[in-house]
Design a protein around this nucleic acid. Structure first.
Lengths: 141, 141
DNA sequence: GACATTTAAGATAAAGGAGTCTGAAATATG
DNA sequence: CATATTTCAGACTCCTTTATCTTAAATGTC
């Protein structure tokens, strides 16, 4: 798995929240139930996104979590950055610390192509775009 | 990291062995020293490759390990398969068990492209080819 | 103000990957 | 046959990720 479980849960949760367009704060309990995730674990994960200012939260009845900005301005890479960091997009496939364009390992060139392609994918997809896909194409979440 | 550390160590070791063209069995101790890996840990990893018949071994003085077949017929994907399995090349990015071409998650199409590209890369590169790269281009290992 | 609801924070536990260590088995050499 | 060398097998430890649980703090409603 290229992304950690925490990161995947974070992505799924932000997509769920984005899909609830006309609602303000969404309770974590609801998200956990709908996505079939552990409530406590998801709570901790979303706290991380809140601390990173990618989401906002509100306590008490009718409270919950929401995206901090408009979902059409939030790119997938931002969620990944908060959860897993961006090292995977620059790391050597063989984990060699000295490997780079000037001093490459034997797999560097081929791997860098794929790495960059994946990076671009995450850099260009917004939460809104993905949710539109869900609506238009009736995709699963 | 897309590949486990064990898998990466296995790849680096098989490349080292492949590079020792005119020698028969190579001691694990030597490989560990040259690649700066833990001897005991590498021993366990290479035993896995031996059990999977990708490598052969010989005990006693002048013993060691060697590739079971000619290195120009061994594809990188075979090493990866033994160590990590091939699930990463069919797994959903979001880990959703029901996601596939017919019933895709919202990221499926984009991800499947990249996943396939990486898979093909590993399916087409032989150990010999990679070692030739090392020699020709003076790449690091 | 009492109470229910909801996130925040942090301690703790469970599981898996990474790494270490010890002793047994095989084999070459003298 | 004794010894040194090397892989084989398995137990064990350590660390990170994943997951659970408990208590505190904030807030809306009556």
């Amino acid at each position: 798995m290229i992304l950690s479980k925490s990161c995947v849960y974070a992505i799924r949760a932000t997509l769920y929240i984005t899909a609830q367009e006309n609602r303000e704060y969404i309770p974590v309990k609801e998200i956990a139930k709908e996505l079939n995730l552990s409530f406590h674990f998801l709570t901790k994960i979303l706290q991380g996104l809140t601390n990173a200012s990618l989401m906002k939260s509100y306590r008490g009845p009718n409270g919950g979590v929401a995206m901090a900005r408009s979902a059409d301005s939030i790119y997938l890479i931002e969620v990944i950055d908060v959860m897993d960091g961006l090292d995977i997009f620059s790391e050597c496939l063989l984990g060699l610390p000295n490997c780079n364009d000037i001093n490459p390992c034997p797999l560097h060139e081929e791997w860098a192509k794929n790495r960059t392609s994946i990076h671009k994918m995450f850099q260009t997809m917004t939460l809104s775009q993905i949710v539109n896909n869900i609506d238009k194409l009736r995709l699963g979440l």
